[in-house]
């Protein structure tokens, strides 16, 4: 265990040791594995949208959903993305899910984030993979079941001698 005092200036860092597989005890009951495999399927983006949302109407979320992703990704292997939604995050009015979908990826669904009102803000961030240039979508499911969608095109630059 080490402390990174010299590295951090603004933040407290907590470093932790990994827990081995042996510690995985009561996890068998968790639905994680099966669900996630169902989440990521080799399909077209149209099929993915149909599978996840059926024919439910989606409103343009431009007014309340901010999808932050670089317009140009210098390589598709690591693309930082974040989504934030204007939401009071109260027990009666909150964002339940944020989906991230990459249209051109072989497996279009990237992640589904499930939030509770205790999150305080409707926000998620991650670094994702993009196979090629194309739209990235954020689809927001609110606690009343309504859907909001935004998308942005990301150009993926192929490698070369640079970097």
């Amino acid at each position: 265990m080490t402390e990174d005092h010299r590295i951090s200036r603004r933040t407290a860092l907590i470093t932790l040791s990994a827990l081995g597989v042996a510690a995985a005890g009561g996890l068998a009951a968790m639905p994680g594995t099966a669900w996630a495999q169902a989440l990521g399927q080799n399909e077209s983006v149209e099929d993915a949208m149909k599978r996840l949302f059926g024919g439910k109407p989606m409103r343009d979320g431009a007014a309340s959903v901010k999808l932050d992703v670089p317009l140009i990704a210098e390589n598709g292997a690591v693309v930082p993305i974040s989504v934030s939604v204007d939401s009071p995050m109260t027990p009666t009015n909150y964002v339940k899910h944020i989906y991230v979908v990459a249209d051109k990826n072989r497996i279009p669904v990237v992640t589904r984030v499930t939030l509770s009102p205790e999150a305080g803000r409707a926000f998620m961030g991650a670094n994702i993979r993009l196979g090629e240039s194309g739209d990235v979508r954020a689809i927001v499911e609110q606690s009343d079941g309504s859907l909001l969608a935004v998308k942005r095109e990301v150009k993926v630059t192929v490698g070369g001698c640079g970097g």
Binding site: V109, T114, R129
Partner: peptide, 8 residues
Amino acid sequence: FDTTQNVA
């Protein structure tokens, strides 16, 4: 977060 192989 439910995640797929699309995460880096």
